[in-house]
Simulated scan of single mutants.
Amino acid sequence: MSKIPPPTVPEKDPDRFLRCQDALHIEFQDLVERAVQAGWKPEEVLVSLIELADNQALMMEANAEVEAALNILKRRGFRF
């Protein structure tokens, strides 16, 4: 497994997402290839990766919402 290169541009750079895609491309291709070699159809692999990415994004959003709600409660004096 190769090392994913770190960002080389600041967070506000308009090309940052493109640079991230470039950084992940080789690992992504390798993951797809390994799954296909294991017997999965390429379409199954790609749809599964899309679903996994979507679920991860939803989880991150839900966690951020819970964290924000907890911070509000903490500011109001609630103790956990």
Rank of each mutant, 00 (worst) to 15 (best):
M1Q: 10
M1D: 08
K3C: 09
I4A: 06
I4D: 02
P5G: 15
P6Q: 11
P7S: 07
P7W: 02
T8H: 02
T8S: 11
T8L: 05
T8E: 09
V9F: 04
V9N: 03
E11L: 14
E11W: 14
E11Y: 12
E11P: 05
K12S: 08
K12H: 13
K12R: 12
D13H: 07
P14A: 02
R16K: 04
R16H: 06
F17W: 13
F17I: 09
L18R: 11
R19V: 05
C20S: 03
Q21G: 07
Q21A: 07
Q21T: 08
Q21M: 08
A23C: 02
A23H: 02
A23I: 01
L24M: 05
L24T: 00
H25A: 14
H25Q: 12
I26H: 13
I26F: 15
E27R: 07
Q29V: 07
D30L: 14
L31P: 04
L31Y: 10
A35P: 01
A35N: 00
Q37S: 06
G39T: 00
W40N: 03
W40M: 02
K41F: 09
K41V: 05
P42G: 01
V45K: 03
L46M: 04
S48C: 08
E51Y: 07
L52F: 11
L52H: 13
A53Q: 10
A53E: 13
D54K: 03
N55Q: 09
N55F: 05
N55K: 06
Q56V: 11
Q56F: 12
M60W: 15
A62Y: 06
N63D: 10
N63A: 14
A64C: 11
A64M: 12
A64G: 14
E65C: 04
V66Y: 05
E67Y: 08
E67Q: 10
A68L: 04
A68S: 02
A69D: 05
A69L: 12
L70W: 06
N71M: 09
N71T: 10
I72H: 10
L73G: 13
L73Y: 14
L73R: 14
L73D: 08
L73H: 13
L73Q: 04
K74Q: 15
K74F: 03
R76W: 10
G77N: 01
G77H: 04
G77P: 02
G77I: 02
G77L: 06
G77Q: 03
F78G: 11
R79I: 08
F80L: 06
